[in-house]
Simulated assay, not measured.
Amino acid sequence: MKFEDVYSRRTADKLTQEQAAEILGVSVRTVRRWEDRFEADGAEGLYDRRLGKLANNRVPTDTVIVYFPSNWVFPGACPFSWSFSPLTAMSATK
């Protein structure tokens, strides 16, 4: 059920905040926050405010220095799926 449907039932005094929270699968505090945002800004107020914002704990790119030895292999574009190739390491020592 959409929030707007639950909200219309809440404003008609057919549901309590506890019942609305149970229907929506969120806490009572979240229902209260959503209701306040909906009353202040309408449906636009319910959109996630974090979208499009950068994380507060991110490291600035100009302070990051990355060194990858030549014997590391990166399959695909993801640098997190690297592996050490012993064949490359052996050929580098010859």
Results as ranks from 00 to 15, higher is better:
Lys2Tyr: 11
Lys2Glu: 09
Phe3Val: 03
Phe3Ser: 00
Phe3Gln: 02
Phe3Arg: 01
Glu4Thr: 15
Asp5Leu: 13
Asp5Val: 12
Tyr7Trp: 12
Tyr7Lys: 10
Tyr7Val: 09
Tyr7Ser: 04
Ser8Cys: 10
Ser8Gly: 05
Arg9Asp: 09
Arg10Glu: 08
Arg10Ser: 07
Thr11Lys: 12
Lys14Glu: 14
Thr16Ile: 06
Thr16Asp: 00
Gln17Phe: 14
Glu18Thr: 09
Glu18Ser: 08
Glu18Arg: 09
Gln19Asp: 04
Ala21Gly: 01
Leu24Ser: 01
Val26Gly: 00
Val26Pro: 00
Val26Asn: 01
Arg29Gly: 06
Arg29Pro: 06
Thr30Leu: 07
Val31Cys: 00
Arg32Ile: 09
Arg33Met: 05
Arg33Glu: 06
Glu35Asn: 00
Glu35Gly: 00
Asp36Cys: 09
Asp36Ser: 14
Phe38Pro: 01
Phe38Gly: 00
Phe38Lys: 02
Glu39Gln: 15
Ala40Phe: 00
Asp41Ser: 13
Asp41Pro: 08
Gly45Ala: 06
Gly45Arg: 03
Asp48Ser: 09
Arg49Gly: 08
Arg50Tyr: 08
Leu51Trp: 08
Leu54Pro: 08
Pro60Ala: 04
Pro60Asn: 03
Thr61Val: 15
Thr61Leu: 12
Val64Leu: 12
Phe68Asp: 13
Pro69Lys: 05
Pro69Met: 06
Pro69Tyr: 06
Ser70Arg: 14
Asn71Leu: 10
Trp72Ala: 12
Val73Ser: 10
Pro75Glu: 02
Pro75Ser: 02
Pro75Asn: 01
Pro75Gly: 04
Gly76Lys: 06
Ala77His: 15
Ala77Cys: 11
Cys78Lys: 10
Pro79Cys: 03
Pro79Ser: 03
Phe80Ala: 14
Phe80Trp: 09
Ser81Val: 13
Trp82Asn: 05
Trp82Gly: 06
Trp82Phe: 13
Trp82Glu: 06
Phe84Ser: 07
Phe84Thr: 11
Ser85Met: 04
Leu87Asn: 10
Thr88His: 13
Thr88Asn: 13
Thr88Gly: 14
Ala89Gly: 07
Ala89Lys: 09
Ala92Trp: 05
Thr93Ala: 10
Lys94Asn: 14
Lys94Gly: 15
